[in-house]
Simulated scan of single mutants.
Amino acid sequence: MDQLAITEKDGANYHLYILEGALNAYTMGEFQNTLYEAVIFKNIVLDMSELVELDPSGVGFLMAAFNDAEEYGHKLYFLSLSNEAEKALAATGFKNEFHLINSITEIG
């Protein structure tokens, strides 16, 4: 079974999570609660450049967190999508609705 490694960093007006590995039904557990709580308080950036898997449950989780952030007046940014993350988000038909960035400097 694949694993998910998460590294955290604070920025001036955001909190960054660097995701490495697989984001799926088996790995998102504790991170799910962490992210749902974090989007309430500040902008969040998910560096997805090192994701090797993003399954439909992972996409659903990200969509829910994205909507929660908007509801609380914050943004959830997706930074540097891996090929797998790009394909999974494109498959939703909503890829262009997400805040996709290629650099931290793009945070508004």
Rank of each mutant, 00 (worst) to 15 (best):
H99L: 06
N33V: 10
L76N: 12
A91E: 12
N43A: 10
E106K: 05
D68W: 01
L54A: 05
Y26T: 15
N102F: 01
L16P: 03
I40F: 13
E71R: 02
K42T: 01
S57H: 03
F94I: 03
A5E: 01
H74Q: 03
F94C: 07
A25R: 07
P56S: 13
E30P: 00
A64Y: 00
T7G: 05
F78I: 03
H15V: 13
A88Q: 04
F61A: 01
D10F: 02
E30R: 02
S82L: 02
E106M: 04
M48R: 13
Y26N: 08
I104Y: 00
D10S: 06
A69R: 15
A5L: 01
F31A: 08
A38W: 00
I6G: 05
D68G: 03
K42L: 00
E70Q: 13
N24A: 07
L51V: 11
Y17E: 08
N102S: 02
S82N: 01
F61S: 02
L76W: 13
N96T: 07
V59W: 12
G11W: 08
V59R: 07
T27D: 11
L79K: 15
G58I: 07
Y14A: 15
K95I: 14
F41V: 10
N43P: 04
G58C: 10
A91N: 10
A38F: 00
T27M: 09
L54Y: 14
M1G: 10
L46G: 12
P56E: 12
L62T: 07
A5I: 03
L76H: 07
K87I: 12
Y72P: 08
N96P: 02
F41M: 10
N13I: 06
A90F: 06
M48S: 12
Y17R: 05
L54R: 09
F94W: 04
Y72K: 13
E50W: 06
N67F: 12
F31V: 05
